[in-house]
Design a protein around this nucleic acid. Structure first.
Length: 419
RNA sequence: GUGGGUGUAGCUCAGUGGUAGAGCACUGGAUUGUGGCUCCGGGUGUCGCGGGUUCAAUUCCCGUCACUCACCCCA
């Protein structure tokens, strides 16, 4: 077999899917509880959308995008994240004109051409939310508290919530100047990447993991000291609200994030459990108050986050094995297979999930099959049962068997399942 | 992009310079229409690909590709 899935892209087979469903429905249920509504955006967008929003000098844009030229001359890109599309759609449809605050969520695949690693794929799934029109800081705290809720619903307990503020444009400019002044004498000691970053985007030096860079960064002036009064009040408000909510968090002044569009609030949730490896950033997000305006929309503050589904999956505890069907129909003789097929339809019409082996085979092998897939109920139909208008209702879990009128079969199963 | 590890049955893996095994899974049976446990039986592989050494390579060497882990980056 030389036709394989493309590097970094994975098939998700039915055996794994229930965990995905559990994750996605927990997310949907939680965020819908806060008034978020789902939106779906194209996977392909104009390349310029990402270059302008994520930032020209970011790694994502510089070397990780799946960009191609459409028939003709348009440069298109497989979306590497969801926020840019959300903002584009928000502006394109003038959503601000119909409601003062917009709360959207999305779930879907994203694409980044990175070297695959544990928990990092080239097609990966994100679930995220965006709030447009609320400047915070209460909404910021509520969003952070909401993600903590999502995560704990999934049974993930070992996490740490990091928050930071990088201020608005004014604070960032002031800070950039101060940071450059601080870094200047160390310039030669920084790693090659950081030497480049100093010119392109000095904030990202703070995020460097190279030991010497990290040492230098540790003593760098904090951006928190350069916040404007408004920025400061915003950040204080966020923290006070988190305290009221009882959401544990830690302020981390080195939290910068790799996307250029953020302003003020930044946050990240780190998984601390075993098995995550280096890909322990479960989710990240922040405020991007300038982006809507820069896309030609009205001046609209916004905040959002995205979580990496594969990583959440790794951090989630294993689920109980359960069956994908409620009833397995067994035909005792080849001659009643037609009747068994009809019985299946009757039960499905009554709302049950029913499977059978229409190829036939011995009674024993059919029951083995029922057991194998963890079905709770086996329903045996043979010549005698057809004649009497009954079925043998076998509870494979409690090892009991009853002869029940066929017309009551579905109702009896429902009763058993809801016990 | 850099470095390491691994490639043998559907899966997890053992093994040998003379073309290969286990467990699981799948499947048949242990008397007439009853699962899980047990017992008996069955099929399955271009031993990743290419080249080299050799009488002979799945086993040794080189290359290559794939997968994987770490760094990096991020979700």
């Amino acid at each position: 077999m030389n036709l394989r899935a493309v590097k970094g892209m994975k098939d998700i087979l039915p055996d794994e899917i229930s965990k995905w469903h559990r994750l996605e429905s927990a997310f949907r249920q939680r965020v819908e509880g806060y008034g978020f509504r789902e939106a779906r955006f194209p996977i392909v967008e104009p390349t310029a959308l990402f270059v302008r929003s994520i930032g020209e000098t970011t790694d994502i844009v510089e070397k990780e995008m799946y960009t191609f030229t459409d028939r003709g001359d348009k440069s298109l890109t497989l979306r590497p994240e969801g926020t840019a599309s959300s903002v584009r759609a928000f502006v394109q449809h003038s959503v601000q004109a119909r409601e003062p605050v917009t709360k959207w969520y999305y779930v879907g695949p994203m694409y980044r051409r990175e070297r695959p690693a544990k928990g990092r794929y080239r097609q990966f799934y994100q679930a995220g939310i965006e709030v447009f029109g609320d400047p915070g800081p209460f909404i910021d705290a509520e969003v952070i508290d909401m993600v903590v809720g999502v995560i704990s619903t999934l049974g993930i307990t070992e996490v740490e919530v990091l928050v930071n503020s990088i201020g608005g444009p004014e604070a960032r400019e002031n800070y950039r100047v101060a940071l450059l002044a601080y870094l200047a004498p160390y310039r030669a000691e920084l790693c090659a990447d950081c030497q480049r970053r100093v010119d392109a985007n000095p904030l990202r030096v703070l995020d460097c993991k190279v030991p010497r860079c990290a040492e230098i960064a540790a003593d760098a002036p904090s951006i928190l000291k350069h916040l404007t009064d408004d920025d400061r009040a915003h950040f204080d408000g966020l923290q006070e609200t988190l305290t009221i909510l009882g959401t544990p968090y830690r302020v981390d002044g080195s939290l910068v994030r790799g996307l250029d569009y953020y302003t003020r609030t930044l946050f990240e949730v780190l998984g601390k459990g075993e098995g995550l490896g280096a890909q322990n950033a479960l989710l990240g997000g922040g405020r991007y108050d300038q982006m809507v305006k820069s896309f030609g929309g009205p001046d609209t503050p916004a905040i959002g986050f995205a979580m990496g589904l594969e990583r959440l999956l790794m951090a989630m505890p294993e689920s109980e094995p359960d069956s994908h069907v409620d009833v397995f129909i067994v035909a005792a003789q080849a001659g009643v297979r037609g009747e068994a097929t009809l019985l299946g339809r009757e039960l499905r019409d009554a709302g049950l999930r029913v499977e059978s082996d229409l190829r036939g085979g011995s009674l024993k092998s059919q029951l083995r099959r029922a057991d194998k897939i963890n079905t709770r109920i086996a329903m045996i139909l043979g010549e005698e049962e057809v004649e009497e208008g009954v079925v043998q209702l076998k509870d494979l879990q409690n090892k009991t068997q009853d002869k029940v009128p066929r017309a009551e079969a579905a109702q009896r199963v429902h009763a058993l399942l809801s016990e």
